[in-house]
Design a binder for these strands. Structure first.
Lengths: 143, 143
DNA sequence: CGCAAAATATAGCATAGGCTATTTCTTCGC
DNA sequence: GCGAAGAAATAGCCTATGCTATATTTTGCG
Protein backbone atom coordinates (compact mmCIF):
# COMPACT_ATOMS: atom_id res chain seq x y z
CA UNK A 1 0.00 0.00 0.00
CA UNK A 2 1.99 2.96 -1.18
CA UNK A 3 -0.07 5.81 0.18
CA UNK A 4 -0.61 4.86 3.77
CA UNK A 5 -0.11 7.40 6.43
CA UNK A 6 3.31 6.52 7.82
CA UNK A 7 3.28 4.93 11.23
CA UNK A 8 4.67 6.99 14.09
CA UNK A 9 7.66 4.67 14.16
CA UNK A 10 8.37 5.15 10.47
CA UNK A 11 8.20 8.85 10.85
CA UNK A 12 10.42 8.79 13.92
CA UNK A 13 12.99 6.87 11.90
CA UNK A 14 12.87 9.49 9.18
CA UNK A 15 13.55 12.24 11.63
CA UNK A 16 16.25 10.20 13.30
CA UNK A 17 17.95 9.80 9.95
CA UNK A 18 17.68 13.52 9.21
CA UNK A 19 19.30 14.22 12.58
CA UNK A 20 22.14 11.81 11.88
CA UNK A 21 22.73 13.38 8.50
CA UNK A 22 22.91 16.75 10.16
CA UNK A 23 25.59 15.48 12.50
CA UNK A 24 27.92 14.60 9.64
CA UNK A 25 27.04 17.56 7.42
CA UNK A 26 29.44 19.87 9.16
CA UNK A 27 32.26 17.36 8.90
CA UNK A 28 31.56 17.01 5.20
CA UNK A 29 31.66 20.74 4.66
CA UNK A 30 34.95 21.18 6.46
CA UNK A 31 36.56 18.23 4.77
CA UNK A 32 35.52 19.41 1.34
CA UNK A 33 36.78 22.88 2.02
CA UNK A 34 40.11 21.69 3.34
CA UNK A 35 40.47 19.65 0.18
CA UNK A 36 39.72 22.73 -1.90
CA UNK A 37 42.24 24.85 -0.04
CA UNK A 38 44.98 22.28 -0.39
CA UNK A 39 44.25 21.98 -4.10
CA UNK A 40 44.21 25.75 -4.59
CA UNK A 41 46.90 26.95 -2.28
CA UNK A 42 48.97 23.93 -1.41
CA UNK A 43 47.89 24.00 2.20
CA UNK A 44 44.89 24.65 4.42
CA UNK A 45 45.44 27.25 7.13
CA UNK A 46 43.01 27.60 10.00
CA UNK A 47 42.43 31.27 9.20
CA UNK A 48 41.45 30.49 5.62
CA UNK A 49 39.18 27.67 6.66
CA UNK A 50 37.44 29.96 9.14
CA UNK A 51 37.05 32.74 6.57
CA UNK A 52 35.50 30.44 3.99
CA UNK A 53 33.19 28.77 6.45
CA UNK A 54 32.10 32.17 7.69
CA UNK A 55 32.93 31.40 11.30
CA UNK A 56 35.35 32.81 13.86
CA UNK A 57 38.79 31.27 14.00
CA UNK A 58 38.32 29.39 17.29
CA UNK A 59 35.19 27.82 15.88
CA UNK A 60 37.23 26.44 13.00
CA UNK A 61 39.90 25.21 15.40
CA UNK A 62 37.26 23.36 17.37
CA UNK A 63 35.81 21.80 14.23
CA UNK A 64 39.26 20.69 13.15
CA UNK A 65 39.74 19.05 16.51
CA UNK A 66 36.60 17.09 15.82
CA UNK A 67 37.82 16.10 12.35
CA UNK A 68 41.00 14.80 13.95
CA UNK A 69 39.04 12.88 16.55
CA UNK A 70 37.06 11.24 13.76
CA UNK A 71 40.16 10.33 11.80
CA UNK A 72 39.45 12.62 8.87
CA UNK A 73 42.27 15.12 9.27
CA UNK A 74 45.64 15.60 10.89
CA UNK A 75 47.48 18.69 12.04
CA UNK A 76 50.20 19.82 14.36
CA UNK A 77 49.90 22.97 16.47
CA UNK A 78 50.44 26.19 14.51
CA UNK A 79 50.72 24.22 11.27
CA UNK A 80 48.34 23.59 8.41
CA UNK A 81 45.64 20.99 8.32
CA UNK A 82 45.81 17.86 6.17
CA UNK A 83 43.33 15.19 5.23
CA UNK A 84 43.78 11.53 6.01
CA UNK A 85 43.03 9.05 3.24
CA UNK A 86 39.62 8.68 4.75
CA UNK A 87 39.15 12.45 4.79
CA UNK A 88 40.30 12.80 1.20
CA UNK A 89 37.90 10.08 0.12
CA UNK A 90 35.06 11.86 1.89
CA UNK A 91 36.02 15.14 0.25
CA UNK A 92 35.92 13.51 -3.16
CA UNK A 93 32.53 11.94 -2.55
CA UNK A 94 31.12 15.19 -1.22
CA UNK A 95 32.46 17.22 -4.10
CA UNK A 96 30.98 14.85 -6.68
CA UNK A 97 27.63 14.80 -4.91
CA UNK A 98 27.58 18.57 -4.69
CA UNK A 99 28.20 18.86 -8.44
CA UNK A 100 25.45 16.39 -9.21
CA UNK A 101 22.94 18.14 -6.97
CA UNK A 102 23.68 21.51 -8.56
CA UNK A 103 23.35 20.04 -12.03
CA UNK A 104 20.09 18.34 -11.15
CA UNK A 105 18.66 21.56 -9.80
CA UNK A 106 19.70 23.43 -12.92
CA UNK A 107 18.28 20.66 -15.07
CA UNK A 108 14.84 21.07 -13.54
CA UNK A 109 14.94 24.82 -14.04
CA UNK A 110 16.54 26.37 -10.99
CA UNK A 111 18.81 29.34 -11.86
CA UNK A 112 22.49 28.54 -11.40
CA UNK A 113 23.14 30.92 -8.51
CA UNK A 114 20.09 29.75 -6.58
CA UNK A 115 21.03 26.15 -7.31
CA UNK A 116 24.44 26.74 -5.82
CA UNK A 117 22.95 28.38 -2.73
CA UNK A 118 20.34 25.71 -2.03
CA UNK A 119 22.64 22.82 -2.88
CA UNK A 120 24.81 23.71 0.09
CA UNK A 121 22.12 22.53 2.45
CA UNK A 122 20.36 19.97 0.27
CA UNK A 123 23.35 17.85 -0.68
CA UNK A 124 23.88 16.41 2.77
CA UNK A 125 20.44 14.84 2.71
CA UNK A 126 20.78 13.21 -0.69
CA UNK A 127 21.22 9.49 -0.13
CA UNK A 128 23.28 7.29 -2.41
CA UNK A 129 20.11 5.92 -3.80
CA UNK A 130 18.77 9.34 -4.68
CA UNK A 131 22.13 10.42 -6.00
CA UNK A 132 22.13 7.54 -8.46
CA UNK A 133 18.65 8.51 -9.58
CA UNK A 134 19.88 12.05 -10.16
CA UNK A 135 22.79 10.79 -12.23
CA UNK A 136 20.52 8.60 -14.30
CA UNK A 137 18.16 11.50 -14.87
CA UNK A 138 20.99 13.78 -15.97
CA UNK A 139 22.43 11.12 -18.26
CA UNK A 140 19.06 10.73 -19.94
CA UNK A 141 18.68 14.48 -20.43
CA UNK A 142 18.60 15.92 -23.90
CA UNK A 143 21.88 17.86 -24.04
CA UNK B 1 31.21 35.11 -15.42
CA UNK B 2 29.10 32.18 -14.42
CA UNK B 3 31.76 29.64 -13.57
CA UNK B 4 34.13 31.55 -11.35
CA UNK B 5 35.32 29.98 -8.19
CA UNK B 6 33.18 31.60 -5.51
CA UNK B 7 34.93 34.14 -3.35
CA UNK B 8 35.50 33.19 0.26
CA UNK B 9 32.86 35.72 1.25
CA UNK B 10 30.28 34.21 -1.12
CA UNK B 11 30.95 30.82 0.22
CA UNK B 12 30.78 32.01 3.81
CA UNK B 13 27.35 33.48 3.03
CA UNK B 14 26.18 30.18 1.63
CA UNK B 15 27.20 28.36 4.76
CA UNK B 16 25.67 31.04 6.92
CA UNK B 17 22.40 30.58 5.11
CA UNK B 18 22.54 26.81 5.50
CA UNK B 19 23.08 27.32 9.24
CA UNK B 20 20.10 29.67 9.50
CA UNK B 21 17.91 27.19 7.67
CA UNK B 22 18.97 24.54 10.11
CA UNK B 23 17.86 26.71 13.00
CA UNK B 24 14.27 26.86 11.74
CA UNK B 25 14.10 23.31 10.42
CA UNK B 26 13.25 21.87 13.79
CA UNK B 27 10.48 24.41 14.33
CA UNK B 28 9.06 23.53 10.96
CA UNK B 29 9.07 19.83 11.72
CA UNK B 30 7.32 20.22 15.04
CA UNK B 31 4.76 22.65 13.71
CA UNK B 32 3.90 20.41 10.79
CA UNK B 33 3.56 17.41 13.03
CA UNK B 34 1.38 19.20 15.54
CA UNK B 35 -0.83 20.22 12.64
CA UNK B 36 -1.01 16.61 11.51
CA UNK B 37 -1.90 15.37 14.97
CA UNK B 38 -4.65 17.91 15.43
CA UNK B 39 -6.05 17.02 12.03
CA UNK B 40 -5.92 13.29 12.74
CA UNK B 41 -6.80 13.07 16.38
CA UNK B 42 -8.36 16.37 17.27
CA UNK B 43 -5.52 17.32 19.55
CA UNK B 44 -1.75 17.12 19.87
CA UNK B 45 -0.48 15.52 23.06
CA UNK B 46 3.13 15.86 24.11
CA UNK B 47 3.56 12.08 24.27
CA UNK B 48 2.37 11.66 20.68
CA UNK B 49 4.56 14.48 19.44
CA UNK B 50 7.58 12.91 21.12
CA UNK B 51 6.78 9.46 19.72
CA UNK B 52 6.46 10.73 16.16
CA UNK B 53 9.56 12.87 16.34
CA UNK B 54 11.46 9.93 17.76
CA UNK B 55 12.68 11.84 20.81
CA UNK B 56 12.18 11.48 24.55
CA UNK B 57 9.21 13.25 26.03
CA UNK B 58 11.17 15.99 27.82
CA UNK B 59 12.86 16.82 24.54
CA UNK B 60 9.47 17.41 22.97
CA UNK B 61 8.39 19.51 25.93
CA UNK B 62 11.45 21.68 25.49
CA UNK B 63 10.83 22.08 21.78
CA UNK B 64 7.24 23.07 22.47
CA UNK B 65 8.51 25.71 24.89
CA UNK B 66 10.54 27.12 22.04
CA UNK B 67 7.55 27.08 19.70
CA UNK B 68 5.62 29.06 22.30
CA UNK B 69 8.45 31.53 22.69
CA UNK B 70 8.44 32.06 18.94
CA UNK B 71 4.71 32.58 18.81
CA UNK B 72 3.97 29.44 16.81
CA UNK B 73 2.07 27.44 19.41
CA UNK B 74 0.20 27.73 22.68
CA UNK B 75 -0.40 25.29 25.51
CA UNK B 76 -1.31 25.12 29.15
CA UNK B 77 0.40 22.74 31.57
CA UNK B 78 -0.79 19.14 31.28
CA UNK B 79 -2.97 20.04 28.33
CA UNK B 80 -2.59 19.60 24.57
CA UNK B 81 -0.64 21.84 22.24
CA UNK B 82 -2.26 24.17 19.72
CA UNK B 83 -0.96 26.20 16.83
CA UNK B 84 -1.31 29.95 16.58
CA UNK B 85 -2.42 31.40 13.26
CA UNK B 86 1.21 31.95 12.49
CA UNK B 87 2.02 28.36 13.40
CA UNK B 88 -0.85 27.02 11.30
CA UNK B 89 0.31 29.08 8.34
CA UNK B 90 3.82 27.71 8.72
CA UNK B 91 2.46 24.16 8.93
CA UNK B 92 0.55 24.67 5.71
CA UNK B 93 3.55 26.08 3.89
CA UNK B 94 5.77 23.28 5.13
CA UNK B 95 3.31 20.59 4.20
CA UNK B 96 2.92 21.94 0.67
CA UNK B 97 6.66 22.22 0.23
CA UNK B 98 7.16 18.70 1.50
CA UNK B 99 4.67 17.37 -1.02
CA UNK B 100 6.32 19.24 -3.86
CA UNK B 101 9.78 18.01 -2.95
CA UNK B 102 8.61 14.42 -2.77
CA UNK B 103 6.87 14.75 -6.13
CA UNK B 104 9.91 16.33 -7.72
CA UNK B 105 12.14 13.54 -6.47
CA UNK B 106 9.76 10.93 -7.79
CA UNK B 107 9.52 12.79 -11.09
CA UNK B 108 13.26 12.54 -11.62
CA UNK B 109 13.24 8.85 -10.86
CA UNK B 110 13.69 8.43 -7.11
CA UNK B 111 11.61 5.57 -5.68
CA UNK B 112 8.73 6.79 -3.55
CA UNK B 113 9.96 5.45 -0.22
CA UNK B 114 13.45 6.88 -0.70
CA UNK B 115 11.93 10.15 -1.84
CA UNK B 116 9.95 10.34 1.35
CA UNK B 117 13.01 9.59 3.44
CA UNK B 118 15.32 12.10 1.79
CA UNK B 119 12.68 14.79 1.51
CA UNK B 120 12.56 15.03 5.28
CA UNK B 121 15.98 16.63 5.33
CA UNK B 122 16.02 18.24 1.90
CA UNK B 123 12.81 20.23 2.15
CA UNK B 124 14.12 22.69 4.69
CA UNK B 125 16.82 23.83 2.30
CA UNK B 126 14.53 24.40 -0.66
CA UNK B 127 14.15 28.15 -1.11
CA UNK B 128 10.97 29.75 -2.43
CA UNK B 129 12.76 30.34 -5.67
CA UNK B 130 13.70 26.69 -6.06
CA UNK B 131 10.26 25.59 -4.94
CA UNK B 132 8.69 27.60 -7.72
CA UNK B 133 11.07 26.01 -10.21
CA UNK B 134 10.05 22.58 -8.93
CA UNK B 135 6.38 23.43 -9.36
CA UNK B 136 6.97 24.67 -12.88
CA UNK B 137 8.89 21.54 -13.74
CA UNK B 138 6.14 19.29 -12.38
CA UNK B 139 3.47 21.27 -14.20
CA UNK B 140 5.36 20.85 -17.47
CA UNK B 141 5.77 17.09 -16.92
CA UNK B 142 4.13 14.71 -19.29
CA UNK B 143 1.57 13.17 -16.94
C1' DC C 1 -14.44 9.19 46.38
C1' DG C 2 -9.90 7.89 46.44
C1' DC C 3 -5.98 5.98 44.77
C1' DA C 4 -2.95 3.95 41.13
C1' DA C 5 -1.48 4.60 36.57
C1' DA C 6 -0.53 7.54 32.94
C1' DA C 7 0.81 11.96 31.24
C1' DT C 8 3.40 16.03 31.76
C1' DA C 9 6.74 18.96 33.85
C1' DT C 10 11.08 19.84 35.98
C1' DA C 11 15.89 19.12 37.32
C1' DG C 12 20.22 18.21 35.95
C1' DC C 13 23.60 16.50 32.75
C1' DA C 14 26.14 16.01 28.09
C1' DT C 15 27.64 17.35 23.45
C1' DA C 16 27.91 20.34 19.46
C1' DG C 17 28.70 24.54 17.63
C1' DG C 18 28.75 29.40 17.94
C1' DC C 19 31.17 33.68 20.12
C1' DT C 20 34.90 37.16 22.39
C1' DA C 21 39.00 37.91 24.87
C1' DT C 22 43.47 36.46 25.84
C1' DT C 23 47.70 33.81 25.56
C1' DT C 24 51.22 31.53 23.08
C1' DC C 25 53.90 30.53 19.21
C1' DT C 26 55.97 31.64 14.49
C1' DT C 27 57.63 34.48 11.22
C1' DC C 28 59.61 38.36 9.12
C1' DG C 29 62.00 42.65 8.63
C1' DC C 30 65.41 45.45 10.32
C1' DG D 1 68.96 37.88 16.53
C1' DC D 2 65.20 40.36 18.23
C1' DG D 3 61.02 42.46 18.53
C1' DA D 4 56.59 43.37 16.44
C1' DA D 5 52.91 41.51 13.76
C1' DG D 6 50.23 37.83 12.56
C1' DA D 7 48.40 33.15 13.21
C1' DA D 8 46.82 29.59 16.11
C1' DA D 9 45.53 27.87 20.56
C1' DT D 10 43.20 28.29 24.88
C1' DA D 11 39.87 29.87 28.26
C1' DG D 12 35.42 30.71 29.22
C1' DC D 13 30.78 31.76 27.98
C1' DC D 14 26.10 31.00 25.55
C1' DT D 15 22.25 28.50 23.18
C1' DA D 16 20.16 24.49 21.18
C1' DT D 17 19.08 19.84 21.38
C1' DG D 18 19.49 15.47 23.13
C1' DC D 19 19.15 12.32 27.41
C1' DT D 20 17.70 10.06 32.30
C1' DA D 21 15.68 10.42 36.65
C1' DT D 22 12.31 12.42 39.42
C1' DA D 23 8.35 15.19 40.80
C1' DT D 24 3.78 16.64 39.88
C1' DT D 25 -0.76 16.67 37.97
C1' DT D 26 -4.71 14.38 35.69
C1' DT D 27 -7.49 10.69 34.85
C1' DG D 28 -9.99 6.67 35.17
C1' DC D 29 -11.55 2.73 37.70
C1' DG D 30 -13.05 0.01 41.49
Amino acid sequence: MPHDTPTPADQADRFARAREVQAVALLEDYVEMIGDLIAEMGEARVADIAARMGVAQPTATKAIARLKREGLATSRPYRGVFLTDQGAAMAERVRARHRTVVELLIAVGVPADTAELDAEGIEHHVSDHTLRAFEAFLAAMPR
